[in-house]
Amino acid sequence: MKNLNTLLAGIFLAVALPFGALVISSQVQLGSLGRAPAEDGGPLFPSREPGLAIQGRAVYVSLGCVSCHTQQVRPAGQGSDIARGYGTRPSVARDYSQQKQVLLGDRRIGPDLANYGARAKDLGGVHAAIQHNGQFAFLYSGAKQDVPSERAIALAAYLQSLRQDYSSPEAKLKQ
């Protein structure tokens, strides 16, 4: 405790070891995850993100939507996510492998959005949801606040692109 070098070495290890063991080793384990078919010859999932969805995510991030919305479905037995209809299966790491920025979130003031694209009925419904009863009216114009701005269009495309309704090697959909 009297020797600064011993103290600093210990503290360095206290920071570096968890970093190596938690962060670097999960990068080793998960870093190479990519698109994969659920069974041989099947289609590859998750789909690549459309360009408009990538723009939409920038809007999602900029408005701080992550303060109120998560994007992760927990397995059955931990909470009621699947029973609540947030998803048909638990989220797995591969679902996020195509996303440049992963917004899991840790607070649900609003519903989970991991599988929103699959349960959204039509584009009108998505825009109604984005408006939040008029709180986000600034994304719309027109007399009835029904003309979406470019940002609202991109955001809607992003929300519609959020889907976890396919089978992947780690999480098969129940038939």
Partner: peptide, 10 residues
């Protein structure tokens, strides 16, 4: 940025 959920872990 690390890939996928590793961002959330970091």
């Amino acid at each position: 940025p690390a890939s996928g959920v590793v961002q959330a872990i970091a």
